[in-house]
Design a protein around this nucleic acid. Structure first.
Lengths: 350, 350
DNA sequence: CCGAATATCTATAACATTATAATAAACCCG
DNA sequence: CGGGTTTATTATAATGTTATAGATATTCGG
């Protein structure tokens, strides 16, 4: 680096006191102009702003964070970063966050999530959104973060383990009521359910909700339920396998609800292959409203997470807790049914 | 806050000097134990580590950043955060980053991207990955960041505007050679191309590559090309519309390459509707390898971005530049053809 | 066995802010 | 007009690290 370059790069990092000197005020006054925490007379303010512009001054948030003990940063911890659903949530969350000058750090990837915790603590993150199943991050880790004054919000897939953690849950009980109501309205009463291996809070929750809805809305105590055999496998292939099993069972059904959209896409494919057309012969409903559901053929009727609303609310609740630890938000969102082409009137009572 | 709570929370933030006091060494030594920048004798090291564990000490990266003038943080600026493709890249990038103790801030959302810049400067981010078309962030903004000593890497969709910016480009010239070679190997010579409105670096680049490949590999100067009419519309619907146009044109073709996967999915649907089956009657190839392509029916043969490799390399190049500004990485990645079910031997020369 | 060289360790000064308390200026009303 | 009150500005002390230079102990050849 030669001399002129050196002087250039020196020129390029104006500090608060440089601005103060140029504006003919104290450094403190410059701070107050930017933080707006105290009144500064219009003339001084103007001079400061002009000086700051001239020097291209940007306040150093690192130094500010050190003193303020807040970093205006939250972390999103997720094990499923590539899921489009997850990303929609993160996008909405981030959009809300930036409005309050918060940055969002993503901690996903393929690294052991537990390893992130000490990074998160070291970086003095203000809050964290744990979007992971409860078996991935233990309660003692949450405890550790809480003791470090880090606000925490968890998703529906983990119970509320501590009075201090916030939560935003999707209400699948209401959601399944909506699905069953929709199918009932189309004349379906024989509704089967395809679930995954029951070792998983998410699936269990949905399945229990289905049982309750069938009982409350159709008076059925024992609806047809097919359950996966492999844990953590709830993809298209599983959907095909389980649907074939359902068909082979000889049970009566005119509609099928699947524990998630991938399973539902598999189900549609299986029905198609076995000569049953969707929705003419059988109606199919998914849960999640992943992007593929839109472009599937036929387009899938499914229960949407309302990702945007969800993401916005996640930040809103977390922000409130960061601001005041005594505000521990616990909310529920009702999912919304997106009616597309995979459900239709029940004509064929086979 | 009562006294016991106060003492609890005081207890919870052990500082370097607390550890030093407990271990009976100086604070400086504690620092060296953690930073590993100087030799510390095994006995002292052990005592320090024990003390740190006992006090649950986590070094404060905010303070460290202030002194070191590095934050170990990079920002990803993108306007298309929900795209699964983008996310795979980010995931890989983040996985590489955390291995070097770097955190990744995402700046996407629906906010005007320009607004992020001053945030990024204020936060003293070490580097930024600009994954946006060149019309979204102007060169003067890049200049500003460079002058602030922020490393920058850009994606293929923006030219290399300054000697100081790094780049990682996908080589679609090679990519289209691979596609055309594949189709040629299956006996196809009449290959049509469906492009979008030519006002877009990405599409142009791919189309030009197609032209060149057709000339070099098949000696054709004037292949059949259908171009979109609306700018920035390259989705399934456009794919359907343009494919219908292609069919109506009466031109001969046995295979179609589309500028991206969504268009290709639309093409398959349009062929299907008009009585042509894929791949029996016509082969279809996409570009991008988005997730839907896997689950489409038939599964789409497409050119993959190698998102994982791409993301890893993005960090690798950026990291090198952060470490040493004189290393300005400029690389190209050759995309990879994922052969699935939508391409087959050419039997039918219609 | 002594001075020089080497190997460890430590005291202190940045780093760029904010919060607090202190100062200076202006104002008000008897 | 002058003491108390309010209002606007500023000097100073944190904040928790790292880098640098200085201090102390250890080794070693002559």
């Amino acid at each position: 680096m030669n001399k002129s370059e050196q002087s250039m790069s020196a020129q390029n990092k104006a500090k608060r006191n440089d601005v103060a000197a140029l504006a003919g005020v104290s450094g403190t006054t410059v701070s107050f102009v930017f933080s707006k925490k105290r009144f500064v007379s219009p003339e001084l303010k103007e001079r400061v702003i002009a000086a700051a512009k001239k020097l291209d001054y940007h306040p150093d948030m690192v130094a500010a964070s050190l003193k303020k003990q807040f970093t205006n940063t939250i972390a999103v911890i997720t094990n499923d970063i590539t899921s489009p659903l997850q990303m929609e949530v993160i996008r909405a969350l981030q959009t809300s966050a930036i409005e309050k000058d918060f940055f969002v750090n993503i901690c996903g990837g393929t690294v052991k999530l537990e390893n992130y915790i000490s990074h998160i603590i070291s970086r003095r993150v203000d809050g964290a959104f744990l979007s992971v199943p409860s078996n991935v991050i233990g309660n003692e880790i949450i405890e550790k973060m809480l003791n470090r004054n880090i606000s925490i919000i968890v998703t529906s897939s983990r119970g509320f383990c501590d009075d201090r953690v916030c939560g935003l849950e999707l209400d699948f009980y209401k959601g399944l009521d909506i699905i069953v109501e929709h199918l009932k309205g189309l004349g379906h009463t024989k509704i089967a359910y395809i679930s995954c291996f029951d070792d998983n809070y998410v699936c269990d929750n949905r399945l229990n909700a289905f049982r309750k809805s069938m009982k409350n809305l159709l008076g059925q105590d024992d609806p047809v339920i097919i359950t996966g055999k492999e844990p953590y496998e709830s993809n298209i292939e599983q959907g095909i396998i389980l649907t074939n099993e359902l068909i082979a069972s000889g049970k009566n059904f005119t509609a099928v609800i699947c524990t998630n959209d991938l399973m539902a896409l598999g189900a549609m494919r299986a029905f198609n292959k076995s000569g049953l057309s969707v929705p003419e012969d059988v109606s199919v409903v998914g849960i999640d409203d992943i992007e593929y559901s839109k472009v599937a053929f036929p387009a899938l009727t499914t229960l949407s997470h309302c990702s945007k609303e969800y993401g916005n609310k996640i930040f809103e609740i977390l922000y409130a807790n960061i601001t005041d630890k005594s505000i521990v938000g616990r909310e529920k969102i009702t999912p919304q049914l997106i009616i597309r082409e995979s459900t239709a009137d029940c004509k064929n009572l086979k």
